[in-house]
Design a protein around this nucleic acid. Sequence first.
DNA 1: CCATGTACCTGAAGGC
DNA 2: TGCCTTCAGGTACATG
Length: 267
Amino acid sequence: MPELPEVETVVRELRPLLQGKMIRTIEAVWPKTFENRCTRELAGQRIREVARKGKYIVLRLEQSDLVIHLRMTGQLALNTSLTRPLNHIRLIIHFDDGEQLLFNDTRKFGRVYHVCQAREILQRIGKDGLDPQWSDEEFYQMLQNHSVGIKSFLMSQKYISGLGNIYTDESLFRAAVHPLRLSSSLSRKEAQRLFESIRFILTQGVKNMGSTISDYRDAYGNPGKNQYYFKVYGREGQPCLICGTPIEKIKAAGRSTRFCPKCQPLR
DNA sequence: CCATGTACCTGAAGGC
DNA sequence: TGCCTTCAGGTACATG
């Protein structure tokens, strides 16, 4: 479910609600959801900062960090800021003011890691898709240096982080790049256009507060609005909004992949 | 290095 | 109404 725009939406909403809160205990209702990789005491620590890299959420505490990944169906919400109740709560962070941060997750894939340094986890993924430090040239060089399908390049998280199945397909469509192209086969100009497309698609996703297909809800329980802007995702069989050719669905990098065969030629 | 398959889970949707 | 299969915003790990 949640890709960069959905995670960013949740982070922006939670930041003012969580900053300064003191942890009393963590209750792992579904034990596998929680992985404790740091022996420092959690109880008594305050949340100093709520941050994000790629699809990871980071709660920076005073002596250690909590790193959260929502995977497919994870959802975070403060018990006091929800209108409707959650039915698959897997973990609860209890604060000393009596409030609780709820981790709801139907499919149980989501994880909360307690680590001494968030870096232990985050160093293994590439720069965030919306990181201002990116340059066209750096992106182009990365494409050149790896001989992988462009879809799997964008999805891997180790080159650029935050893109998932939806935003990858939308970015490739905007850039007119076929999902089966080889990363190293993109010209400098194509790479530049793809990079611009990724930034545009992610920024638009954030503006629209994420995409809701079925499960995704923000920290207040509200759906996103970005699904109304999809040009290829979920539109297989329907006419391309540019040329009218039916959108196709294939398998790429092991995932369903939508694209316009005319606008995104393989060459 | 790279591609593919499987595992982890639940629930919705489609075919018969 | 079942029952069975397939599919889903993700990632880690095993296997050629």
